[in-house]
Amino acid sequence: MERRADELGAAAPAGPVLGEAAEAFLSRDDLDPATSRSYGQTLRRLRRTLGDRQPLASLTADQVTRVFTTTWGEAAAATWNRHRAAVRSFGTWASLDDLAAGLDRRAGTRPRARPLDPAQLDAVWSLPDLPLREETLWRLLYESGAGTTAVLSLNVEDLDLDDRRARSLGAWVSWRSGTARLLPRLLAGRTRGPVFLSDRRPGPARTPGASDLCPDTGRRRLSYERAEYLFKQATRPLDPARDGYTLRRLKPPHRDR
């Protein structure tokens, strides 16, 4: 047993490791909550694939390229570039060689989303057994014309229910009567934390930062990926292609986001 303990001690990595460095990087005061969440998605994938005990000094651009190719090889340009920017920022902070050296920036080719027409919107609002959270989120996206990230970043304490507006990511998000009718029911007396919450509490290994956790319920902020998935699943029967609509199509036709 002593020999085994010596072997384990000898195998312990010298210097900082990936998991610890990622936590330190994301906990910086100069990162706003939205950026921290975005960067955290990228670094969580690296940590899961390479391991938290990966010595930081041995992390290479080739390893990062393999993770990106496997995980986001078929992703849209915007998604690929967002993860690429995150790993570049992390590498610069950690004083490593360019971790994105093997990752070319992709040109955006996604066509502009066509807003749902009035008949399609009526069908969305008429979906049976529509959960309160989804109905409120979709109404707010439509009435405000704001981006999904900005709306999901809203906190209860930032809402001005009387004036029907809130500040998010440096811009105002305003809404109309449909959202105003739903918001008080969704909040149910909550005064702090994210407006839109996940269905369940996170496990011990996936606890988010305090800014993304509701202090009253213990649930985390609803993610963009989950919100998009639920909208596509709910609208699949309404879509002639049976793919389901994307949240970007809730944009009012007369507004720019």
Rank of each mutant, 00 (worst) to 15 (best):
L56E: 12
R220M: 03
A11D: 14
K251G: 05
G147V: 02
G15I: 11
A34Y: 04
G19C: 06
E134A: 15
R112V: 13
A119H: 15
R88H: 05
A205G: 07
L141Q: 01
A86C: 11
S153M: 13
F68S: 01
S27D: 15
D62T: 14
D104N: 12
A75M: 06
G51T: 08
F90N: 02
A180I: 03
G40E: 05
L59H: 06
M1L: 14
L213R: 02
P240Q: 12
L247A: 08
L96Y: 08
E2Y: 09
A227G: 09
N155H: 14
P240L: 11
G178F: 02
A205S: 14
G218S: 07
R48V: 06
G73H: 07
P128K: 13
A14I: 10
D212F: 00
R112W: 03
R44L: 12
A205H: 14
E135Y: 00
D216G: 05
L141G: 01
A205I: 02
R219C: 12
A180Y: 01
D117K: 13
P118R: 09
E228M: 11
R255N: 04
W138M: 13
C214P: 04
R105L: 10
Q63H: 10
G170P: 10
G108A: 14
Y224D: 15
L59S: 05
W72L: 09
L50R: 09
R48A: 13
R257A: 15
L59R: 03
R47W: 00
G73D: 09
R112Y: 04
Y229C: 08
A78T: 14
D32A: 14
L96D: 11
G193D: 00
D212C: 03
T149K: 11
R192F: 05
F90Y: 06
